[in-house]
Design a protein around this nucleic acid. Structure first.
Lengths: 223, 223, 223, 223
DNA sequence: AATGAATGAGTCTTCATTCAT
DNA sequence: TATGAATGAAGACTCATTCAT
């Protein structure tokens, strides 16, 4: 279907028809609209009419691509996961320097690629609907959370091995260290939008890193 | 919408209208049932029928005490806040020893009085419905989160003053330090109930404290 | 529930409340309205709104008594069957005279109790929806058609035993003899309502009996 | 409604408008597919999608030949009538022997050409939709039923004239004699497909003829 | 002539809310 | 105070119909 560099390329029209282009782009447009509204209002409170009109199509069109509202929900989560995993790959790719610097760098990348984008709404969505869509929740847990936790655990282990970090319970430490990051994403899509108190993400993450790396303790290595 | 007084009741406790008195007599069973179901299924997916039958009353009875489903929701949050605030008072009451020990003790108490009870479901509920009930969210923010943050900030300040803690951005540090606690509560009422991976709360909180107090760093005061 | 002549009768209010009376009569009112409309327009073309308003209730009320449109359909057929079976019992009860006279009498009773009433619409309904509701069709077949066929077969057998009727294939003969009766009921609820040619049921049934008893043949017993 | 011409086309065959010509070119596959599905599921429960895919075309193609689902329905009945009338002509063509033998022969032909084919589904279809398509029903009544009845009446009259049959009410007798034949067709396309009790058509028709010709009576011409 | 993506009116179904008892 | 039958507005879903290609 996707047809890279064959002889038949010659007979392919250079300009795809509008119809065709639309057809292929549709599902992504629809899930994008759905993600935004699911995150904003929750699954139940989001009307298919709203999703459709936000995507610029009629309600019936949704059913050309998704069997039901639930199927759309699942597609939203599934589709939202791919970029996150891609981001994880990018993050893991190549880095130099200490493990502390690595963590710093990973966090910045996460913020750029996930936290600051609409993908940052997924955690809130999955958490809110976990009881109503257990499969989705455990899938998200497995595909995203566990994987990210694994990544962090490896970094921590290397830090310990290098004598850079203290020995610790890896599992728990990873969870605890992720919590402020997840909460940042969650808050940005919920309470921070209501009250007047909006958090400065950059400063928040910087504080998180400092605390994580040094803790509260004032005890210092004597020079 | 139809009943903004519900929230403002808090600030006008001196006048006891008929309505007021009725509202005080309001069976806690109703809000307890509602809290459980709202936390479990979310606001929209919870039917008044279910709340009523869980509370052992008929659906009509709910309307003797609450003007609408929204009013019930607000009451649930409001009522759930009181014990939290009481807990905060208890916690603040009397303590001895270092600030680190204080934090430890506060955390244990929070877990006993809030985190391990059904009240621990409130954060998830408020977060999930924040966009649909902004007043509730910002009220919760003000009444609970901000107050708890203030408490923590005071502890941190004292630790800094005593030379026990490093200087830091108090606001951000408090938020960051709360995040793992909130996430614990949130997870216990969402994703932890789906997958097979349930967290051990005691160990989780212990790890949080250790990380918070010492950080990841292995640098130690040389003897 | 139905409570004939007990001591407790004394404590029962003589006048049932309007509400109560309504509650008990409701399902029958609803199925009556549904039967009329299903027969008239078919299952799919009948809107629940129409059924509700014909029964003088709101659409939602239907769902207090029936889980779905399909459940209502099944209830219509089930409920329609009871009187038919009752009629069959009445018909079987007591008769004197020849088997030919018995058949005549049975036919007249069927017409009075079934054919001329709205129950006469059931065969058309069941036939029309047989493919979409196979269970209902085979249930109707078993509960009504087979039973009626059995009744007729017994009459035929007795006629044969008495030397009154010719030997014959009982099964097939019963089916063939029922056909004109069923067709009368079917026609009265379909084509006869459209064109200008309405059949005179009495004459039709009389002709059926004559043909059945004597056939077309002009051969006569010599005096 | 939008296309009453569909039926009247029959009476104005001389003028060939563009539309007319297009309609005549109308592929029989479409109406054949439609007939099968209308008979199987009823008019309302049949989706144009299903008809199209059964005919191996796209849904849009149906609209090249028929203005609406209703127009398609009418065409199905109209088109289904032609072979029946042709069959009637064949049947009437040439026969020898007694009128009883003629009836026998006519019945066999009807079974071969109509009853055993998919055309046998038309009576059920017309009956089921008679109330929703009165014009179609009365047209079918006039074009098929009445004509067949006329045919039978002539045979009966000749039998009476020849002293072969008893005098009788011709109209009613014809209707009664047709009923078992129609019921056979109807049953084969409805209830017989559900339960386990399928009728043997040949035996059924044979029984019908015997009963019609001799009746139930055992009275015999003494030799 | 043929396609099939898109539409939106129509219908079933749910459920918060009311009110007679 | 308590009930639960009744309501009707709202929303998910279907499918006949249209039309750009």
């Amino acid at each position: 279907m996707s047809n890279p560099a064959t002889i038949e390329v010659i007979s392919e029209p250079l300009v795809e028809s509008t119809r065709q282009r639309r057809k292929e782009a549709r599902p992504a447009e629809l899930t994008a609209a759905a993600l935004a509204l699911f995150v904003e209002k929750g699954f139940a409170a989001t009307r298919l009419d709203d999703i459709a009109s936000r995507a610029g199509v009629s309600k019936g069109t949704l059913y050309l691509y998704f069997d039901s509202k639930e199927a759309l929900f699942k597609a939203v989560v599934l589709e939202g996961i791919v970029p996150v995993l891609d981001a994880a790959d990018v993050i893991m790719a190549g880095f130099k320097g200490s493990n502390a610097e690595l963590m710093q760098q990973l966090l910045v990348m996460w913020w750029r690629l996930v936290g600051s984008t609409s993908l940052g709404g997924l955690p809130k969505l999955v958490i809110s609907e976990a009881r109503n869509f257990p499969e989705v929740a455990s899938f998200y847990q497995d595909a995203v959370i566990s994987r990210a936790r694994g990544l962090l655990k490896r970094v921590l282990q290397r830090g310990i091995d290098a004598g850079e970090f203290r020995p610790m319970n890896l599992e728990m430490s990873a969870d605890v260290l992720f919590a402020p990051i997840l909460m940042l994403a969650i808050r940005r899509h919920s309470v921070d939008l209501c009250g007047s108190t909006s958090t400065d993400p950059e400063l928040y993450l910087k504080t998180h890193m400092e605390l994580a790396l040094h803790g509260l303790s004032n005890n210092r290595l004597s020079p």
